[in-house]
Each structure stands twice: as structure tokens, then as C-alpha cells.
Nucleic acid binder design. Structure first.
Lengths: 332, 332
DNA sequence: GTGAAAGCGCTAACAG
DNA sequence: CTGTTAGCGCTTTCAC
């Protein structure tokens, strides 16, 4: 067994070895059923003998389809996004599509370029919680490829989207803390350009129970952001803090505990998203279960539909519910 | 402003509008400095007016380079891998490369196909903690493209690799628990086909202090795996458990706490990797800091080198150190 | 059912 | 420095 010269085996070699035309080989690999069994097996044999693999790039150029769709995420370090993508991956896979994902790292400025770059190598794009403005979305959609927007409401452009009703869930979660007797609440604000943040904060501002106050504290979307906000939370003199998401809630809990405070006895804390870690924190986190599986599935179904010719503009609205665990308790 | 007909703007249109040849346009976009300023600006103007974007797929087919490299991960739900990739991403980006990542979901069977699929659309491949056997690696390398293997030692094939000395770090971590007075240790085993697991377990088997016993308990690599192993850990009647990684350690701690045991008073627990969550758990996790940043950087440097013609076979060996936090304490 | 041939949009010799 | 031209490997009419 010697080292092989690695000159690429092309469709032409296969055609030649099988004694057929390149068109026939192409048809066989495309799964066309209009090729006789006889020729099909000759082609397959030749291909196997030669170790032929179709050249994906050439296929894409000739057919105009890449069978790839791009996914742009603001921050893959957040397990929420990852869980969502994992479900999309599965759905896409069974339809014969691959996903390529890029992470904008919460950089608003990076989104347009990354989006364009993904679109250049794919047949469509899924934007998860995009932070960019309408102009960028317009620019992206001008490429003429299907675009699905998740967790971001944009009415003007006729883009397809899947949304989760953050507003109602956040209200319910706030109500839960109020029912526990809390009156002085802090809401820990997340990433500024996030639609989900806007919805959650909007929900908090509607809280109008007697004697209840809601103080906003700016933070961000990471554990570090939550951790760093603890002094400001303490300064607000509250008994419950509702964080933008699970990550910041985890940071808050750690910061509180470092100062000798205990959760939930001294302070109730809630998150949002229900990432896998939420069950395993100490105390287990009260949060909102965002239906990552359904979102992923819906996003793919909509995208796949457009890939097959559906017109854009489809909307899916999902609902969520709070999950009460151990990080919230009655006011003592 | 009306809706545009979306016939793709090609290099030919730009050439025509700028009154130059397609070669010149190609050169301008390739950043060649052998084009006069005069023509360069005419080309750029025409391109802007027409809204021209080079067709990535066509560029790849013609040039034989995709400027993309694939990354295959066993499980992106583990923040360890994500952190590592994020650093590679940065390095690759500044060299003008994009990364496409696929997740094998701990499925040994999926690795060959995913690896091939990635290679088909890229100029090279980075395998993170691959579980597959040498044959598969051989098959992959037969494609003639650069392959870099991370966290997996394979001596025969001349593949490039970056390794971390898991063995020594694991020994130090075990010694730490022994120094604290622990004598009955449990080692929680991770994914069976993982090289890192083999190294860590190998380290544990060398522990030969007087009166010290190490009991292996099979688990896996996720929080759920760690959580599910708790009854078996308890049955082993130990005072310290060294988990394969941080994720399983987190699962163990949660399981212990649910049973009313406290960490580290009733049981010391350690992880491995030092994922971002490790600082924020309660108690903060004693673990080994795996140098994700250096690994990512090294993996990219080696890959980039081969992309520029370096011969394969480069080796990088990195070291790690335990990080003592609050989940381990002296035996009471 | 099968083959011939014309591209897909771009790059890279090769001339000039 | 710039233009001409021959492909990259495959898909897809269009005939037969």
C-alpha cells in the first residue's frame, strides 16, 4: 500500500470508468430515478473503486444551491442560543441541509458583515436575536435569499419571524415575586439592543401593584455583568431581583453569596431562558422556560419553506411559562 | 425607490461599467497592488454603483481555496469547547479565514461523515477531542487537506496536534485532595472514547499513597451524567469525588445538595476544564484550568501554517494547573 | 433513458 | 500594468 497521488477524482473519471456520460453520473448522485438499474450500479461501482466524492463547491456553483443555511447568533457563550441551534441542526439535517453558524459576540457592528458573509456561502439566513437595525436587515434581504428572524419583531419589512411572548411571561414572573410578598423589586437590564430585553423591561414597567416599586439596574447579558451589578442591586435596597436572563441571575447569586447573603432567604433572584444550568445551580433557579426546542423547530420549518418557494412573511408566536424553583421564597 | 430585479451582478458587469477587463476587476478585489490607482478607483466606483459582491462559491471553485476551515467538536453544549473555539475564531479572522463548526453530539458514528462534509467545503479541518479511531483519521487525511488534532494523541499518522498535559494536572489535583486528608476517593469517569478521559483516569491509577483508595464510577460528560451518578458515588462511601470535568462535577454537587449533603463539608468535589461557570457555582468549583486560549491559538497557528505550506506533524504540548476554590476542604 | 454541450462566476496563466 | 482565455467540477436544458 503506497501513498496515493492525490489528483482529485472528478465526475469525468467516474463517467469514463463506468462507460457512461457525466450527465448520467450526475443524475445517479442526484438520486434521479430516471437512470436504469444497470447504469446506476456501474456508476456506483466505478465511483467506489475510484473513491469519488462530489465536489461540493462545484455542485453549488453549477446548481446555484449550496444546501447550507447560515445562522447568526449574538453570543454562543450563552447556552440558550446553543440549545436553540442544536434543535435547528437536527431539523435541518433531516432535510439534507447543513448549518453554518457565526457569532457576532454582541457586536452590533459585526452583524452586517457576518450576515453578508454567511449569505455568500449559503442559501438562506437565520438571525437569532439580531441587534442590528432595520436598514441592515433590508440590506441583507436585498440579497434575495430567505431570511428568518428569531426573537426580534420587525413589522415593516416582510421578513419571516418566530417570536416568543416574553412580555406575558415576564409579567407572570414578576407577579410570582409579588405574590411571595416582595414589594421592592430590582429589574436587571440586559443588552441594550435586544428586543427581548425591551419586551421584558416593558413588562416590568406595567407592574402597578400597591406599594410595589421596580428599580431598573443596568447590567448586560453575561454572568460577569450580573456579578458586577451586585453592589448596585444592594444599593437599591430590594428584596427580589429579576434578572434579564439566567446568566446574569447566576452572576448575581454568586455575588450575593460572596457577600454572605443567602438566596432566597435574604434575596429572591429570578432568571429567564431556563438554560440547562438553571436546574443545577444552588439554589436551583426560578426562571422562565423559553421553548428552545419549538423555537428551533419553527425557525427551521419557516426557513425550509422559503427554500422551497414559500413567500416570506410567515409568523410564529410561541408562549412560555415561569418555572418556580428554589431561588425565590416568601418575604420574611 | 422600487423593488429591484435581483439578477446577480457579476464581475463582468463591473468590468463593463468600469471599462476594464474582468481580470482587472478580479485583481482589484484580490487586493493586488499591480493595478493603477486610476483603474482601481474606476473599478471600485462601478462595483459600488452596481452593488457588486464577489461570488464566494465561484471564487472558491476557480481558485481552489475556500478560505474556510472546518472545526468538528464532540459537544458544543460543553462551554469548554466553546471557549476554545472562540479564541480560534479570533485568530482565524485576522488571517482572513472563516470557521465552520459542526457538532458530532458525542456520536462516534457521526464523526467521519461530518468531518468529510466539513472538508468538502473548507481548506482544512481541526478536530477537537475526536473520538474516532485511526482509520477514520487516515481516511480524512487522505483528502490531502491540512488536519489538526486537538486533545488527542495519535503517534502513527503524521498529523499535527496540540495536546494538554492532562496527566500531570490530574495527579496534582488528586494530590491536593489527599493533602486535605482525604483517603477514600471516587473518580468519576467521562466519555469512554475520550483521550482526555484516558489520561485523567491513567493519572488516578498512579495514585499510590498509603491508605488511599481510588474507586472509579462510570458517568459521562454532562451535568445529567454527574447528577445520575450520585447514588453510586454515595454507595462508594468516599469523602472526595474527582469528576472527569466541570460539567459532571456540577451535576454531582447538585445531586449531593438535593440529598441534604453539603459540599465541601460532607464531600469534596473537583472538576476539570475551568469553564466560565466554575467560578460562579456554589460553592465555587475546585478544578484544573485548561488553557483554552492558548489551545485555540496554537491550533490555529498550526493549521494556518499548513495552509501556507508547512508540512504536517507539528506538535504543541501545553501544561495546566489546578485552581483551588471552595468545593474542596480538609477532611473533618 | 442517455448523451452533448453550454454555462455557473471567477481566477490565473500567458501574452502583450 | 492590463487584457484574453482557458478552465475549476458539476448541473441542466435540449436533443435523440
Amino acid at each position: 500500500m503506497t501513498a496515493e497521488r492525490t489528483e482529485r477524482v472528478t465526475i469525468r473519471h467516474v463517467a469514463h470508468n463506468a462507460g457512461v456520460s457525466v450527465a448520467t453520473v450526475s443524475r445517479v448522485f442526484a438520486g434521479s430515478n430516471s437512470v436504469s438499474e444497470e447504469l446506476t450500479s456501474r456508476v456506483l461501482d466505478a465511483a467506489r473503486d475510484l473513491g469519488y466524492t462530489p465536489h461540493a463547491v462545484a455542485q453549488s456553483l453549477a446548481s446555484g444551491r449550496t444546501r447550507v443555511v447560515g445562522v447568526l447568533v449574538p453570543n454562543l457563550a450563552n447556552p440558550y442560543f446553543y440549545a436553540l441551534i442544536k434543535h435547528m441542526l437536527h431539523e435541518a439535517d433531516r432535510d439534507g441541509y447543513r448549518l453554518i453558524v457565526a457569532d457576532s459576540d454582541e457586536s452590533l457592528a459585526a452583524e452586517p458583515a457576518l450576515g453578508m458573509s454567511l449569505l455568500g456561502r449559503s442559501d438562506g439566513l437565520v438571525l437569532l436575536s439580531p441587534r442590528c437595525n432595520a436598514e441592515v436587515l433590508t440590506e441583507l434581504s436585498r440579497q434575495g435569499k430567505p431570511i428568518t428572524v428569531v426573537n426580534r419583531q420587525i413589522d415593516e419589512l416582510g421578513l419571516s419571524s418566530v417570536l416568543v411572548d416574553n412580555f406575558t411571561a415576564m409579567r407572570k414572573l414578576a407577579q410570582h415575586t409579588i405574590d411571595l410578598g416582595h414589594r421592592r423589586l430590582v429589574y436587571l437590564q440586559g443588552p441594550a439592543r435586544s428586543w427581548q430585553e425591551r419586551e421584558r423591561w416593558r413588562a416590568m414597567r406595567t407592574i402597578r401593584a400597591p406599594g410595589v416599586s421596580v428599580t431598573p439596574v443596568r447590567a448586560g447579558g453575561t454572568m460577569e455583568d450580573g456579578h458586577a451589578a451586585v453592589p448596585r442591586i444592594l444599593a437599591a435596597d430590594c428584596t427580589a431581583v429579576l434578572a434579564h436572563n439566567d446568566l446574569t441571575a447566576i452572576g448575581v447569586i454568586a455575588g450575593l453569596q460572596e457577600r454572605g447573603l443567602s438566596v432566597p432567604q435574604d434575596m429572591s433572584v429570578t432568571g429567564f431562558d431556563d438554560i440547562p444550568f438553571a436546574r443545577f445551580t444552588n439554589p436551583a433557579l426560578t426562571t422562565v422556560h423559553s421553548p428552545q426546542e419549538e423555537i428551533g423547530r419553527a425557525a427551521w420549518r419557516i426557513t425550509a419553506g422559503m427554500l422551497h418557494g414559500d413567500r416570506p412573511g410567515a409568523r410564529t408566536l410561541l408562549t412560555t411559562e415561569p418555572v418556580i424553583r428554589a431561588s425565590t421564597a416568601p418575604l420574611m
